[in-house]
């Protein structure tokens, strides 16, 4: 069992637990942005934050698995998917803004217009 002082040491100086904590906190901040803010653009930024949190955790485990290039390969695939999501998501936001001249999520709560 790890002692508390060496656990805190790992948190402060960049052990695996420190990177995991940063990733989890970033994910929660992104999730709260999506859930609590009402502007589509801010919700979109929250989604980007969550993707970055996942990337930090992925590459941290990649390093502690011996620096295998598989982690970096999957990171490349993730940013490919993120780029697709950015293109389609922003196109949807532009189209919704044309419909009602607002990016407020509450006013776009129905599927028909």
């Amino acid at each position: 069992m790890m002692s508390t002082s060496s656990f805190l040491q790992a948190l402060w100086t960049g052990g695996l637990q420190g990177y995991l904590l940063v990733g989890f906190l970033l994910f929660i901040i992104g999730l709260m942005t999506v859930l609590l803010r009402r502007s589509f653009l801010l919700q979109f930024m929250g989604i980007e934050l969550m993707l970055n949190a996942i990337n930090i955790i992925l590459l941290a485990f990649g390093k502690w698995q011996g620096g295998a290039p598989t982690a970096s390969t999957f990171y490349l695939f993730i940013i490919g998917v993120a780029a697709c999501e950015a293109a389609v998501g922003l196109a949807l936001i532009v189209e919704l803004y044309r419909l009602k001249s607002t990016t407020d999520a509450d006013q776009h709560s129905t599927l028909r217009h």
């Binding site: 922003l90 990016t103 407020d104």
Partner: peptide, 27 residues
């Protein structure tokens, strides 16, 4: 990719939409 491409796209859309402030809640 992120700071260069995706964020430039996002800021471009923000400035084009002219929706800089979040609106006050309906309910």
């Amino acid at each position: 990719v992120y700071a260069g491409a995706i964020l430039v796209l996002l800021l471009f859309v923000i400035m084009m939409l002219n929706a800089h402030e979040e609106e006050s809640p309906q309910d």
